[in-house]
């Protein structure tokens, strides 16, 4: 969908939320849900940062690292992509304390989601770096750059543009996965919704509001990433290089 349609949807969703906030049936649940939404945002932001770091490091390690580092990266990527995010969270939350390491629920949430999405991000980074034309590498050799210089100044800036759309998808995935942390006792948006649902049994207003709130957050990410892509790609030649 184009940015315009997405913006229309975002405005529509925000207006619906605002309208519902003024109606009596819905407004009771608003403060609690907003509190939950704030925690969701915090987890999503911290998790995304960790995911970007993990993705970049392990993606580059898989491509250019010395052999032991490469194996480590591949093991990390395969384990976290091969198992369920929920199982990973539960393992960090329930099984890790039995090995003597107890973590705060918030830390578990950020670690679990960040590591999970980071593993997918590693493949994104790898694909983006490999998509940079070979001749760019050859040109850096001709200019007598070291490999590190070439990577930092020539390859990564170009790969960065190719990375933006898939990272946007991953951030949305991560935002949606934050609903899982409600199952490890964090009172995020999904947890608040369930809690209110159990005490008031007013399912329709609660879950409608929650869906709308998640929709607004996701749309913000989508639109933001589209804009970032546009800004980053400014001045880049369009189309496939020959």
């Amino acid at each position: 969908m184009g940015t315009f349609s997405l913006s229309v949807m975002l405005v529509g969703a925000v207006i619906t939320l605002a309208a519902l906030a003024t109606s009596h049936t819905f407004s009771v649940f608003f403060p609690g849900l907003l509190e939950g939404a704030w925690l969701t945002v915090q987890i999503a932001v911290c998790g995304s940062l960790l995911a970007v770091v993990m993705g970049t490091v392990s993606g580059l390690a898989k491509l250019y690292g010395p052999r032991p580092l490469r194996w480590l990266a591949v093991t990390y990527i395969e384990i976290f992509r091969g198992t369920s995010a929920l199982v990973q969270l539960f393992w960090l939350f329930f099984a890790l304390p039995l090995f003597g390491i107890s973590l705060e629920p918030f830390t578990v949430a950020v670690l679990g989601l960040g590591l999970n999405v980071g593993a997918y991000g590693a493949e994104v980074v790898r694909g983006a770096v490999q998509s940079v034309s070979r001749s760019q590498w050859e040109a850096t050799i001709a200019l007598n750059m070291t490999r590190l210089q070439a990577l930092r100044r020539i390859i990564l800036p170009q790969a960065f543009i190719a990375m933006i759309p898939p990272w946007g998808n991953l951030f949305i995935e991560l935002l949606k996965s934050t609903a899982l942390v409600s199952l490890i006792t964090l009172s995020d948006l999904a947890f608040k919704a369930q809690e209110m649902n159990q005490t008031t049994m007013r399912t329709i207003p609660i879950f409608t509001l929650v869906l709308l709130m998640y929709l607004v957050m996701s749309l913000c990410i989508t639109i933001g990433m589209k804009r970032l892509e546009k800004t980053a790609a400014k001045g880049m030649p369009r189309g496939r290089s020959v």
Binding site: I172, T208, L211
Partner: peptide
């Protein structure tokens, strides 16, 4: 249809499961 797809893809699966399980009975 695109709006529908965008809405479903932008909201967590967990909430959708809850929606079907808890809200549909009402």
């Amino acid at each position: 249809v695109s709006v529908f797809i965008e809405c479903i893809r932008s909201t967590p699966l967990l909430i959708q499961i809850f929606f079907l399980y808890f809200v549909f009975p009402s």
